[in-house]
Design a protein around this nucleic acid. Structure first.
Lengths: 192, 192
DNA sequence: CCTGAGTGGAACAGTCGTGTTCCACTCAGG
DNA sequence: CCTGAGTGGAACACGACTGTTCCACTCAGG
């Protein structure tokens, strides 16, 4: 019976796939139009509006799921960048490459912080702290400009990533070119 | 009679003051919440909702007025920076200082380009062209990194300005400190 | 085959923002 | 003082989005 209940909440197979389709479509859509309706999300996901409400009773439930999803990916990307290994500038470069893969999630994180008002966004996620630690290490080692505060470095990192992503989204540069520009700019800006 | 008609469209004195109050309040409000209602704008401006509709019959009329207003300020700021005088890096610094004064208009320009869909925003304003010319000049003179394209430099300029403005808006730094961080970062990033 | 999980669509009520109309109020200038 | 420009508020119709219910359909697995 307990398994029945659990199944009703998060079954495997079809349910998982449908849920993913909705969340992914919502991320891509809301990144372009933060005012998109649930009907738009449903259409983008290729499902009926009813189905969306079946998985996420209220709009806020969908938003929370998106927040959790993006947060999870950010944490995974941060872990993959192994920030505590090697010179700080190179670690930052790895982090940029990982974050760049977040794609539309990048846009949501950057210009919809109001949208990201779910549980675990108190300006202090593990990823934030890991990045802060890295910047502090770089300043101490003399491999990062000590004039720049960790908060500012973080802002610059996100805004340059956002700019690069938008550049490639608007077809003004390939993803590779955009990332290269971003890395070169960031590297020079943060060098001592 | 002609004067009567003109007066009905854009009288001087009280009407001009009320109009300014509405536009300014709308810029400040929409920068924080792009989904703010006209009732919110009216409240923020300290006028009745009816009055807003008297000056801007439809929502799109208000948005167009905001677009025109911001555009005008951007052009004025660009002119004040005298981009064709002195070394390119210094001209860019002057431009940053001017643009930083745009305040909330900065936010609207940056993350609400969809909102800026009025007449004169065809990705090619005079200010855009003046900035492009400046960057080209700097590249030719060897005072700006030739690896960075004018479009990218423009993106970086706006995103760093936006970051700096947000930093000061969130009280994480004074306006002066934020601008200093921005200028230092931009200067290093764009140096050859 | 047949059963139930998963789904889509139609229909409905409720809410909110928009745009409009109308009327009473204020107050500065003649 | 008094007149009219400027205003605010109430009320209304309308449309869009939301959240809910109900029913018919599909289709994979036992």
């Amino acid at each position: 019976m307990v398994e029945q209940q659990r199944a009703a909440v998060a079954d495997s197979g079809t349910r998982t796939r449908t849920r993913r389709a909705i969340v992914d479509a919502a991320v891509a859509l809301l990144a372009r139009d933060s005012g998109a309706s649930l009907a738009d999300v449903a259409a983008a996901a290729g499902v009926g509006r009813t189905t969306v409400h079946r998985y996420f009773p209220e709009r806020s439930d969908l938003l929370a799921a998106i927040g959790a999803d993006v947060l999870e990916k950010v944490e995974a990307a941060t872990a993959a960048a192994r920030l505590d290994q090697g010179p700080a500038p190179e670690a930052l470069e790895r982090l940029c490459q990982e974050y760049f893969e977040l794609g539309a999630g990048l846009t949501l994180m950057f210009d919809s912080p109001q949208l990201m008002t779910w549980s675990g966004w108190d300006e202090e996620t593990p990823a934030d702290r890991a990045l802060s630690r890295l910047v502090e290490r770089g300043r101490a080692e003399g491999t990062l400009d000590a004039e720049l505060t960790p908060e500012w470095v973080q802002s610059v990192l996100w805004s340059l990533l956002y700019s690069a992503w938008e550049l490639s989204r608007r077809r003004e540069a390939s993803k590779h070119t955009a990332l290269t520009l971003c890395l070169r700019t960031l590297g020079k800006a943060l060098a001592p």
